[in-house]
Simulated scan of single mutants.
Amino acid sequence: MKNILIIDGARNATFSVFQATEDEFAIVFPNGQDMETIGDLIERLGDDQAGRLLAPLWERPILKRDAMGIHGTLFFDNERNQRIIPSSKREIDWDDSSINQAQRNLFSRHR
């Protein structure tokens, strides 16, 4: 199972973690992505298929303290996040001005 962190603009800001199967994860995050927006997912799959894909995930929450890593982030606050996430939708491609030197060093080893 892979863990997906949900980032949304809700007032409760729980930023909950849900588990996805390998196949589900590959559909949400194709081509080596580890970030996706719900708007782009729906655009790619269609509203009905995206709903069917995500329905089982919502039945698999996991406590952050029990998660053995975060494998992907799904953003629900599209308008804001679409402007800030890298176009590649990969964590290692953040703009250098958005991260500290230790992150730049780490990411440069994994590009």
Rank of each mutant, 00 (worst) to 15 (best):
residue 2 K to S: 01
residue 3 N to L: 00
residue 3 N to Q: 02
residue 3 N to E: 00
residue 3 N to R: 01
residue 5 L to N: 01
residue 5 L to H: 00
residue 6 I to D: 01
residue 6 I to P: 02
residue 7 I to M: 07
residue 8 D to K: 01
residue 9 G to F: 06
residue 12 N to T: 04
residue 14 T to Y: 06
residue 14 T to Q: 10
residue 15 F to Y: 07
residue 17 V to F: 00
residue 17 V to L: 08
residue 19 Q to D: 04
residue 22 E to N: 08
residue 25 F to D: 01
residue 25 F to S: 02
residue 25 F to W: 02
residue 26 A to Q: 10
residue 27 I to H: 03
residue 27 I to P: 03
residue 28 V to S: 04
residue 28 V to N: 05
residue 28 V to Q: 04
residue 32 G to V: 09
residue 37 T to H: 06
residue 38 I to D: 10
residue 38 I to S: 13
residue 40 D to G: 14
residue 40 D to C: 13
residue 42 I to F: 03
residue 43 E to K: 15
residue 43 E to N: 15
residue 43 E to V: 07
residue 44 R to P: 09
residue 44 R to K: 15
residue 45 L to G: 06
residue 45 L to H: 10
residue 46 G to Y: 07
residue 47 D to Y: 14
residue 48 D to F: 12
residue 49 Q to L: 10
residue 50 A to F: 05
residue 50 A to L: 08
residue 51 G to L: 12
residue 53 L to T: 05
residue 53 L to K: 04
residue 54 L to C: 10
residue 54 L to Q: 02
residue 55 A to L: 14
residue 55 A to K: 15
residue 55 A to I: 10
residue 55 A to R: 15
residue 57 L to P: 03
residue 58 W to I: 09
residue 59 E to L: 13
residue 59 E to V: 03
residue 59 E to H: 12
residue 60 R to W: 04
residue 61 P to I: 06
residue 61 P to H: 11
residue 62 I to W: 00
residue 63 L to H: 10
residue 64 K to M: 06
residue 64 K to N: 07
residue 65 R to L: 13
residue 65 R to K: 14
residue 66 D to H: 14
residue 67 A to G: 02
residue 67 A to E: 02
residue 68 M to N: 14
residue 68 M to C: 09
residue 69 G to N: 07
residue 69 G to C: 09
residue 69 G to W: 11
residue 70 I to M: 07
residue 70 I to Q: 06
residue 71 H to C: 03
residue 71 H to T: 07
residue 74 L to C: 05
residue 74 L to N: 02
residue 75 F to P: 00
residue 75 F to W: 14
residue 75 F to I: 08
residue 76 F to G: 15
residue 76 F to D: 08
residue 76 F to V: 09
residue 77 D to K: 09
residue 77 D to P: 01
residue 78 N to T: 12
residue 78 N to I: 11
residue 79 E to G: 10
residue 80 R to E: 15
residue 81 N to E: 13
residue 81 N to T: 13
residue 82 Q to Y: 11
residue 82 Q to D: 15
residue 85 I to V: 13
residue 86 P to Y: 07
residue 87 S to K: 15
residue 87 S to E: 14
residue 87 S to M: 11
residue 88 S to P: 04
residue 89 K to D: 02
residue 89 K to N: 05
residue 91 E to R: 13
residue 92 I to F: 05
residue 93 D to I: 08
residue 94 W to N: 07
residue 94 W to Y: 15
residue 94 W to A: 10
residue 96 D to T: 10
residue 96 D to S: 14
residue 97 S to A: 12
residue 98 S to H: 09
residue 98 S to G: 00
residue 99 I to N: 03
residue 100 N to K: 08
residue 100 N to F: 10
residue 101 Q to S: 14
residue 103 Q to S: 13
residue 103 Q to F: 11
residue 103 Q to C: 09
residue 104 R to E: 04
residue 105 N to G: 04
residue 107 F to W: 15
residue 107 F to N: 05
residue 108 S to D: 12
residue 109 R to L: 08
residue 110 H to C: 09
residue 110 H to D: 05
residue 110 H to S: 12
residue 111 R to N: 12
residue 111 R to M: 11
